[in-house]
């Protein structure tokens, strides 16, 4: 028995679905961000797996850039959460339905 690319892709889609459900179910903005990280990581798995299947380093390069964008997203997102929390302590995603302070 050998690990084929499809195994990795199935693992990635499972992880992506769990992350998507977490994003839809949870209200704590921090946990929602973590769910987004799960989805990003599942996409990284597909990049590396397909790159390996095609004998191409391009997949790994793509993962490198995804990592950078994920870091940027987390920095800005957490800064937003801190800024919102300063004005509205204990706010969750349902309380933030308007785009004004």
């Amino acid at each position: 028995m050998e690990v084929t690319t499809n195994w990795y892709l199935v693992l990635a889609i499972l992880m992506f679905s769990i992350g998507a459900v977490g994003l839809m179910v949870r209200r704590n903005p921090l946990v929602m961000f973590m769910s987004v990280e799960l989805m990003l990581n599942s996409v990284n798995i597909t990049f590396v797996s397909l790159g390996t299947a095609l004998n191409d380093v391009g997949g790994q390069i793509a993962v490198f850039f995804v990592l950078v964008v994920a870091a940027v997203e987390v920095v800005v997102g957490l800064a937003l959460i801190v800024a919102i929390n300063r004005r509205h302590p204990d706010a969750d995603a349902d309380d933030l339905s308007v785009l004004r302070g």
Binding site: L11, L14, M15, I18, G19, V21, G22, V25, R26, V31, M34, S35, L38
Partner: peptide, 12 residues
């Protein structure tokens, strides 16, 4: 895969 999926469910 078990580590990943258990952790992912745990996050949620």
């Amino acid at each position: 895969a078990a580590i990943i999926l258990v952790g992912a469910v745990g996050v949620v």
